[in-house]
């Protein structure tokens, strides 16, 4: 079947098997490899991206479901050569080590701040509780999101 998914503002049209997972489409058909996969069972959250502005686990969604919808990935965070505050926060606060869970964490973190600009530590921890990081012990991820909250974005992340 042919699908067209707008990814970071650019429509991507491909002929795919209906069983193609969205994470696979984004990585292989659109060539955007910043979105990773880690568990197959929607438990780890390394594959989190946005569909129509809400984060989803893209290993557990078919590309066909996103046909005609807007997807935003980690590659869409940086605007006009300026890092999004969530990206800058992860750098400033050492919120990443191996970098594998980082794109998913940042997509969730930025979504949280869009809906709750001043989250408490507990709200941040709850919001990323469906995502696993094996390196950081989470403390610096929480700090990174807090840093971003304290340095609000001047531009909107749009699909």
């Amino acid at each position: 079947m042919e699908v067209t998914i707008t990814i970071n503002g650019t429509p991507v049209t491909s002929e795919i098997e209906p069983r193609t997972l969205l994470v696979h489409f984004v990585r292989e058909n659109a060539g955007l490899r910043g979105t990773h996969w880690g568990c197959d069972t929607s438990n780890c959250g390394t594959c989190v991206l946005w569909v129509d502005g809400s984060p989803v686990k893209s290993c557990t969604m078919l590309a066909a479901q996103a046909d005609g919808h807007e997807v935003t990935t980690v590659e869409g965070l940086e605007q006009g050569g300026v890092l999004d505050p969530i990206q800058q926060g992860f750098i400033e606060c050492h919120g990443l080590q191996c970098g594998f869970c980082t794109p998913g964490m940042m997509m969730t973190g930025r979504w949280l701040l869009d809906n709750n600009p001043n989250p408490s530590e507990a709200e941040i921890r709850d919001c990323i509780s469906g995502q696993i990081c094996r390196c950081t012990g989470y403390k610096n991820i929480v700090a990174s999101i807090q840093w971003a909250a304290e340095h609000p974005a001047t531009s909107e992340v749009t699909a």
């Binding site: 990585r27 955007l32 490899r33 910043g34 979105t35 990773h36 996969w37 990935t73 980690v74 590659e75 965070l77 940086e78 890092l83 990206q87 800058q88 992860f90 750098i91 400033e92 050492h94 990443l96 970098g99 594998f100 980082t102 794109p103 940042m106």
Partner: peptide, 19 residues
């Protein structure tokens, strides 16, 4: 000091084997 490697990771530009 900030990590040198973060510049690529926060942009989704890491290069893992499956990439």
């Amino acid at each position: 000091m900030r990590r040198v490697e973060d510049a690529r990771f926060v942009r989704g530009q890491g290069n893992y084997v499956d990439d």
